[in-house]
Design a protein around this nucleic acid. Structure first.
Lengths: 211, 211
DNA sequence: CGTACTGGGTGTACGACGTACACCTAGGAG
DNA sequence: CTCCTAGGTGTACGTCGTACACCCAGTACG
């Protein structure tokens, strides 16, 4: 081998492979092939597949731009979370991967720490900040699980029994007047929900909410 | 065999097995063993594993109690979503399973339809209802991905670098004054976030929000 | 200069997994 | 009595993660 492997090369190749083929297509064997190496070689740089995915997520999280802390927590938070969303949009597999893991890596903790800092620096109480972080949930990392956002692969079920669902879908198609209504404006929906939450937090904070 | 298999017996056994051992321990082979049958026998009642999981989810969703529609959408919605949460608490694997699937089953659509109906019957516009449903996201089904709610299995990383995270954890331990602070009050956190959202929706609705 | 150590790539193998395919068999319909 | 068929069986394939033994190019050191 002309160039040696190292952890960084492995992680970057894994991220690239997942970007290209999706997370469920990522296997140790495929990744090894991609790197021109035998599968077991990877284990010299990565403990196992879970740890590989942790590392991949750290790469993604390190790409999140840090929001300018202006002292005004609301716009700072908005900017921070939308920056996280940009990183997640670049790596569509990342949100699913985060859902699968059950222990935060230091990189995640560091990111979280920065987010909490924005609230606290803005004068929000520790107690309210706690609940607010829970309320944001995965949104703090820039994603929500869009329930069934993918196009239905097989034949769609009979929709006539679900008139309200149909109406809702129609509303989407109408608002952003695309021809087939290829779906909703995800960015708008994300910001809509984010603003509802941030406005709610602001109101609670202003009213001196306490546990 | 004294008792024949059928789709219902398969699904119920699968649900019970997942309840007992978790979703990742559920395999076609284990489920077959549980039923005293050879693995391939399952495929006479279920197309494949994905379809099995869809069926299991339908079982769970059918357990959600329907909220009494009082004409006042806010308490009705609150009740409906908390009922969904109860069903999800009974089957901790269900939320993860829902995240994995990418096409809604008729049972899910029927549930969604009922939820949307509550908003519409309460006088909310179709457009606002649409965004509101997106904002609820998976919460409408009674769960949010609690980011890393599980206890850290291995050795926890050095926390001194993340003072704000530590403070937040301390706050949790303090509020519900358990000894070790075994975690947060999930029910409270869920309702807190839900109420922030519902209050926000109510305000937008009252102000005649439109796209 | 020789030798011993070690970091990193290799080869083989195992035990899971989902499931395709051919088969068999009990029980009901004609 | 015969045939059909729903449903359970047996075998087999390809894929997966990864344990374990090996081997080899440097390099450190006597």
């Amino acid at each position: 081998m002309v160039t040696r492997l190292n952890r960084d090369r492995v992680l970057r190749a894994a991220v690239a492979l997942a970007d290209r083929t999706g997370l469920e297509q990522l296997s140790m064997r495929r990744l090894a092939q991609e790197l021109g190496v035998v599968p077991m070689a990877l284990y010299k740089h990565v403990a196992n597949k879970d740890e590989l995915i942790d590392g991949m997520l750290d790469v993604v999280i390190s790409e999140i731009e840090e929001a300018a802390d202006s002292g005004d927590w609301k716009p700072a938070m908005r900017q921070q979370i939308l920056a996280a969303r940009q990183a997640m949009l670049l790596h569509p597999w990342a949100s699913r991967a985060i859902e699968m893991r059950q222990t935060p890596t230091p990189a995640v903790l560091a990111y979280m720490n920065g987010v909490i800092k924005i609230f606290r620096a803005g004068g929000m109480s520790a107690g309210l900040t706690h609940h607010v972080m829970h309320a944001l949930g995965s949104r703090v990392l820039g994603f929500t699980q869009e329930l069934y956002s993918a196009a239905p692969g097989g034949e769609p079920p009979d929709m006539t029994a679900f008139p309200y669902v149909v109406e809702m879908a129609m509303t989407a198609a109408h608002e952003n007047d695309t021809i087939v209504g290829g779906g909703c404006d995800d960015q708008f929906e994300f910001e809509f929900a984010l603003d509802v939450l941030l406005d709610g937090f602001e109101r609670l904070h202003a009213n001196g909410w306490h546990p």
